[in-house]
Nucleic acid binder design. Structure first.
Lengths: 189, 189
DNA sequence: GTCTATACAAAGATAGAC
DNA sequence: GTCTATCTTTGTATAGAC
């Protein structure tokens, strides 16, 4: 399984952004990680903003494919919400990395329009997925107390992203679980 | 009311970090903001890490003074929680700035030990304040359904910090309110 | 597609005059 | 306490050989 250079660069870049933020890594770091010269990276991604846009687009696609898979494969809304929480749990890697979107939140100001557009598209897609999930919960009863799917969706996203922030500082995954515990406790089926 | 240069520098730095992150501003930016030369800043803060530590320490003091004021002045736990949520709401400045702690979350890796220590101290203090507040709620009944104050504390912090992330992208304060709505809905007195 | 070499600007920091 | 001047390192990016 040989991975092409472009993919290796994107893998390394995503990792670095999620560890140190978009302003926290350089082509020099990627050069070391992938084993090609700094200048060669510009062949694949002429400007850093191209790279930042590319990894956001790829990340969005990966995550949405996973979420849509849950919609297809998991019978209840409760199971889907549990799987959703796990996506954000796994993204933490024991506290060493954040979800790409959270990592982008701070630097946002300096991004290109293309990058910003990818972020907005992704967040809208995740929101819609959550709204549908909570709407389904109203039908199948697998999550307690759902009266407003839209409100629940933004609440749930805030919980998992906020839990990531907290866990990032403590590097203790138990804190992530504790922060999400009230949300998970409402899953009944 | 003349503000001394050191304070002006801290004010400008805090603003910039909360807008663009710790890696997103330079002494050059501060130079422009405050109106003294780049080199002169080093007289007040020899290294950037000294500045980052100083503004975190000051921020922690300011926020904790406010929270302790609520404990003194507001009779119910519910009122104190509402005030707490408002601290994080106000910190957003219509979506243009984050709470300093959230802004630090991404860059964290590259911080000095002194800066990290200030962050940890602050987060512990906020957590303790929240735990006490939810414990009080069990007595005064001003927040519904509190069974585990420690769990509630980390949940509440995740909600307000996560809500900041979401609002940062949308620049719509209504999203902050929507994200916190489930939490606020439990306040009864 | 990757290399060497290089340009160019910005960042963090120091020395010493005033 | 602030200035000018300077240094060093790093970051982003381009040109042209292989």
């Amino acid at each position: 399984m040989t991975t092409d250079t472009k993919t290796q660069l994107m893998d390394a870049a995503e990792q670095q952004v999620r560890q140190k933020g978009a302003d926290g890594f350089s082509y020099s770091d990627l050069s070391t990680a992938v084993g090609i010269r700094k200048a060669s990276i510009h062949y694949h991604f002429p400007a850093k903003s191209d790279l930042l846009t590319a990894i956001m687009a790829r990340y969005a696609k990966t995550v949405m494919t996973a979420l849509d898979g849950y919609t297809r494969d998991l019978p209840t809304a409760g199971q889907r919400l549990a799987a959703f929480i796990n996506v954000y749990r796994d993204a933490l890697n024991e506290g060493s990395t954040l979800c790409l979107c959270v990592a982008y939140a701070v630097s946002q100001e300096g991004f290109s329009d293309a990058t910003k557009a990818e972020i907005v598209t992704f967040r809208d897609a995740v929101s819609d997925w959550l709204i549908n999930t909570f709407a389904d919960a109203q039908t199948d009863g697998s999550i307690t107390g759902v009266t407003d799917p839209k409100m629940e969706a933004s609440h749930a996203l805030a919980v998992v992203e906020g839990a990531q922030i907290a866990t990032r500082f403590s590097e203790d995954m138990a804190l992530f679980d504790q922060s999400c515990s009230a949300l998970k406790g409402r899953i009944t089926g």
